[in-house]
Design a protein around this nucleic acid. Structure first.
Lengths: 173, 173
DNA sequence: CGTGTGGGTTGCTCATAGCAACCATTCTAG
DNA sequence: CTAGAATGGTTGCTATGAGCAACCCACACG
């Protein structure tokens, strides 16, 4: 990782930092991110399947949110993970079929429904998370804890920034 | 980021580090990564479109690699971005149709073909990259350069580890 | 030559997301 | 009290991107 290709000062002096190294750093982040994105897809896919063949990769994030934030309504869930309602609706329907989540009508609002993780869902999540962590461990085993923490912190920061202005939504985690 | 939900010592003593904080760090990385993954998708999509309607999100990484590594063959390109040959083949065909890349028969090996960025492709890439960087800048503007560098380094490290042992595909890079 | 191997392509399928249209319920007003 | 807007969710259709498997063509080796 040290390709001098798109980090040239071509973009002209930037307002704030205007620093060449800042530009380069920005470009590097962008590059790595786009690579990571691609990798993550296949890994995540293979990974989920390893535990539960029917456990779609997308379901993971969903269940994870459900687990963290308890029973929430679909719309909220959708914005939590940053996708549209239709996707979530279908995903939830699917997971309900598997018995991993439950939809419960909101007594106060007939349209709304609280979606929650079932006991079975909790259990599956444990399995999947263990497996995930196992795989991560394979890759991150040698990383010093400090680096892992910093890495997570950076990602959290980036994620938070998307929430701030990119997404019309609320806090996650 | 400090949820006591799946970082509890439930996973029992781990072999190597066995450290509680290491476990927590691992879980945090995993969590953030999965969130980031989702976000990146929509962002990347919206982003590419913003510059060139026909510029598929997937094409970006591809062109980026092409630009960095010059004319390379399809298989190598495929493994560079961590995706199978078929996908790349189609993507390349599409981009060729747009006049952004060119396929050139390798005189030494009739089967192989060097794929390269055309002048038009270069130009487009400038536009897209500028736009991308602009968006990144919106989000990462306040980050100290040092943090950006560290972040990129961590991602690179993670990416590299996938290349090392994760992919049953073929050799990468 | 013939057979095997490796580079690329194509056919088919799957997973996921989005938009738009829709139903149902609740809220708001006249 | 009843029309009509607004909100929560669902469903139809479409598009993108990826994989596997099967295939074709060129090279290389015997």
């Amino acid at each position: 990782m040290s390709n001098p290709h798109d980090a040239v000062p071509a973009a002209a002096p930037v307002s704030e930092a205007g620093d060449a190294s800042a530009e380069e750093a920005l470009a590097a982040v962008e590059r790595q991110l786009s690579m990571l994105w691609r990798r993550a897809r296949s890994v995540s896919q293979e990974l989920s399947r390893r535990v539960h063949p029917e456990m779609e990769p997308a379901a993971y994030g969903l269940l994870s949110v459900l687990r963290t934030r308890g029973p929430i309504r679909l719309t909220e869930l959708a914005s939590s993970i940053g996708v549209g309602k239709p996707s979530v609706s279908r995903q939830v329907a699917f997971l309900e079929g598997l018995g991993l989540v439950a939809k419960e009508a909101d007594p106060l609002d007939g349209r709304a429904q609280a979606i929650s993780l079932t006991a079975k869902g909790e259990e599956k999540m444990h399995l999947v998370q263990d497996a995930r962590r196992e795989v991560f461990r394979e890759r991150l085993a040698e990383w010093p804890t400090g680096e892992l923490e910093a890495f997570a912190r950076y990602m959290a920061k980036l994620n938070a920034s998307y929430e701030r202005d990119g997404f019309p939504r609320d806090e996650v985690l």
